[in-house]
Design a protein around this nucleic acid. Sequence first.
DNA 1: TTTCATTGTGTATATGGTACACAATAGTAT
DNA 2: ATACTATTGTGTACCATATACACAATGAAA
Lengths: 248, 248
Amino acid sequence: MKKKRPKFLLNEAFRKHGDRTFLPHLSVDCVIFGFHEGHLKVLLLKWKDGPWCLPGGFIKHKESIDDAATRILKERTGLDAIFLKQFHAFGDPLREKGKRHQEGWISKRFVTIAYYALVDYSKVFPQPDSFSSECTWCDVHAVPNLIYDHKQIMKVALEALQLSLNDHPVGYNLMPLKFTMPELQRLYETILGQSLDRRNFQKRMLALDILVKLNERKTGGAHKAPFLYRFDKKKYDRAVKRGLGAGF
Amino acid sequence: MKKKRPKFLLNEAFRKHGDRTFLPHLSVDCVIFGFHEGHLKVLLLKWKDGPWCLPGGFIKHKESIDDAATRILKERTGLDAIFLKQFHAFGDPLREKGKRHQEGWISKRFVTIAYYALVDYSKVFPQPDSFSSECTWCDVHAVPNLIYDHKQIMKVALEALQLSLNDHPVGYNLMPLKFTMPELQRLYETILGQSLDRRNFQKRMLALDILVKLNERKTGGAHKAPFLYRFDKKKYDRAVKRGLGAGF
DNA sequence: TTTCATTGTGTATATGGTACACAATAGTAT
DNA sequence: ATACTATTGTGTACCATATACACAATGAAA
């Protein structure tokens, strides 16, 4: 189950000579979004005896930055083939204010290329990396102080995600296979930070023609049992590609 | 008028030891859009005895990437305080296929952070850099082969610009102070690559409430003299900030 | 003076978004 | 068992916006 990590990640040589493996001055950070019990979550790491931060890593000398992000995401979550989108590069020379004094390449200034990911919460088993003692989900609206500019990165990621709702359907990567309309609505509401009209939301989603209504209802709740839906993957993918075509 | 460039840019030492000044493995490329005689243009450089490319440069050790982009833009166009937006980082390890064999830091792999800029064509006086023999405008739809992945970068820039039309007004940075409605429409049409209905376009633009209709007409054309408009800068800026609020 | 391409303008229609109310139901409390 | 309560399912009237479309006026050129 658990793969042994390469030694250099664990010892002093990494801090001093990581640039034999990785590009200097460049890092990748991931804002990994999940959705659970009606709340939007992000995956955070806690450094040993240190602050919280976003999961991140470095780019190997012969690796593309997209591949680096995919690799980092897989290491933390065990998932591959999930939705991953580069949204901004952060390159203020003072962004790592308060960086601990260290030696070698790692002590230098880093420009970070940030991605956000949308994953199915229930399929993720958070794995701390070798610098970290914890890796856990945290409610988007109750994030502790993060190291450096990571809170800013999170904020920009959320704004990018919000904007993307107008161009692309969202949900396939965040919801379980079957879900109810209220659950999907809750997802949109937490991403947007505002409540939406129940009936209009449903009309709008159905108009996208990417949902299939099932003949099952979700029982167990304390109230009237809502119908279950699933995404029509083919139509969903087509909608992602061509966009939702608002505006010009 | 012409400032003397630092020597290291011109001699061999730059190729070998530029990393004393600049971050290794990182570059910035700019897709500079202008608009002239009804055509959307990009500013291109031609290497001495070499191919065409986008204006680009490197990031100084204590400089933010935004500042680097601003500096590069100013060097090529003489303009500052113009619209500049980071839109993507390109980091495929093979993106610089066909790179000439050289020594030192410059021979290494580069990840490039790309910006697009919107500038007033008439205010720009293109300046080649020290590697280049020419710096000229080129019609977006008649771009020659470009080095590396620069054509791809341009394509992504144009797509980003197209998308941004739905969220933000465009034109203040691309049009002269006074302009006619058909001219503005032509700008939108060339960015989008499609023609728009004259009357609906006008209604839509006026509905944005960012234009001021002047009591002048543009004479000299071979036909009925169209009215001139200008942007209401305050309202324009407000619209840029809050977005055009389509969708959610 | 005629011609012609272009500009200025308004209306009817379709589409999509918003606001809103009442009956049905699945568990919970008694 | 019964009543209760929060929630779901559904449809319509209204408003805003987008689209399609036609004709008179104008300024230069022939």
